[in-house]
């Protein structure tokens, strides 16, 4: 296998992106023909699952980033202290 895989070519990546966006649009537009049987009121809003999925993911990423500022350490953090007989 050579380095030139079809996934390595930028024009194919662009094609994949277009296909992805087309599928995204289709899943939302399909709501015009499919009845969703909503259990809760919010579920009946047009494109609810799409918008909800997108927004909560943004929020989770932002939250994780924020928490990361507080909790992230270099990955040698424990190795340094446990070398000198820490708690082993």
């Amino acid at each position: 296998m050579k380095n030139e895989h079809w996934l390595d070519q930028p024009k194919n990546i662009k094609l994949l992106w277009r296909g992805f966006i087309a599928v995204l649009a289709l899943t939302v537009l399909a709501e015009f023909v499919v009845h969703l049987h909503p259990h809760f009121e919010v579920e009946g809003l047009f494109g609810f699952h799409a918008a909800y999925g997108f927004v909560v993911c943004l929020l989770m990423i932002v939250f994780a980033k924020g928490l990361g500022l507080l909790l992230k350490r270099p990955d040698s953090y424990y190795a340094d202290s446990e070398k000198d007989g820490g708690n082993e």
Binding site: T27, V34, C57, G68, L71
Partner: peptide, 30 residues
């Protein structure tokens, strides 16, 4: 359909935010 919407738009969020998800050689305290 609803499951596909939920998942595919999460996928969109991943690629839109890819810059924020860049891997760093770190661990997180627990």
């Amino acid at each position: 359909l609803t499951q596909l919407q939920l998942l595919l738009f999460s996928g969109l969020a991943f690629f839109v935010m890819l810059n924020y998800l860049k891997r760093t050689p770190t661990i997180s305290l627990d």
